[in-house]
Design a protein around this nucleic acid. Structure first.
Length: 269
DNA sequence: ATGTCGTACTCCGTACGA
């Protein structure tokens, strides 16, 4: 059986200061495609050369200075690139590519949903209003079933939709990322588009599953107060090819870590 | 669980976003 295709998604929280951590991910797991969020880097300053030397010649960028920014770094050829603006703000929060993959093209979308600030009330918090607007726009686009091509949506969606996606459902019901308004909106988008929650297809509830642990915890591993903010959704036509999923929890303990860890998804060719 | 990060400018400290 040929080696599976491995996709990784990781909110790297600055690609420039954590290039070495991505090299470690490559050394340990050798993903074919790496989707990054929060690169915090204009395209002209992206460390493309490092990734080319690592064996990733196909690179698609949508970055901006200081904040946000997404990237796709690939061993598999990229046939086309699409950068979608959201909410008319000019933020770099989406990049879509068509991978010229063995077994046929795959439509891959890499997203960074707004965090939404602290107060879960759009009337007093513009950031939360922006998050809800973003979800509404996402619903009108990706909330339709994809047609004609196997499709994958990955990224930091900044929402932990299920009760077992957070360390305490009751204690986080009023905390941005797990409020009923956000979780209902995200699940409606996912089910409306007939997207499969790949991570939960391999690790069903009630098992806890997290991808993010706050920097502010004194001991993130001991407290283990995590949330599943990062996601991999696949279209129905990829279901039988989905071969595995891994949350690289150990990466949260690497030197100068991101507060998010990589999520890996494997597909048969 | 108001705590710790990274970035950019206000530029060796402060403001902002997360």
């Amino acid at each position: 059986m040929p080696r599976p295709i491995t996709l990784a998604t990781w909110n790297i929280n600055s690609v420039r200061i954590r290039t070495g951590l991505i090299e470690r991910l490559v050394a340990e797991r050798d993903p074919d495609v790496i989707c990054l969020q929060e690169t915090k880097c204009p395209d002209a300053n992206f460390p493309e050369g490092v990734f080319r030397k690592l064996g990733y010649p196909h690179i698609a960028l949508n970055g901006q200075k200081g904040y946000h920014g997404v990237a796709v770094i690939s061993r598999i050829p990229i046939a086309s690139v699409d950068r979608r603006p959201f909410c008319g703000k000019g933020d770099a929060r989406h990049i879509g590519v068509v991978l010229d993959a063995p077994g046929g093209p795959i439509d891959l979308h890499n997203l960074y949903v707004p965090a939404g600030g602290d107060e879960p009330d759009p009337a007093v918090n513009d950031k939360f209003a922006h998050k809800l607007d973003f979800l509404e726009e996402l619903s009108g686009w990706i909330g339709r079933a994809p047609a004609g091509m196997p499709s994958v949506v990955v990224g930091d969606l900044n929402i932990a939709p299920l009760e077992d996606d957070v360390w305490s459902h009751k204690q986080l019901l009023g905390v941005v990322s797990h409020t009923p308004r956000e979780t209902a909106a995200l699940e409606a988008i996912r089910t409306g588009g007939r997207w499969i929650d790949l991570m939960r297809s391999f690790v069903p509830c009630p098992e806890k599953l997290y991808t993010w642990w706050s920097y502010r915890a004194a001991d993130w591993a001991a407290a283990d107060k995590g949330r599943r903010l990062d996601h991999v959704w696949i279209s129905e036509d990829l279901r039988t090819r989905a071969a595995g999923m891994e949350v690289l929890r150990a990466a949260r303990g690497w030197d100068r870590p991101s507060d998010h860890v990589p999520v890996l998804a494997r597909f048969e060719r």
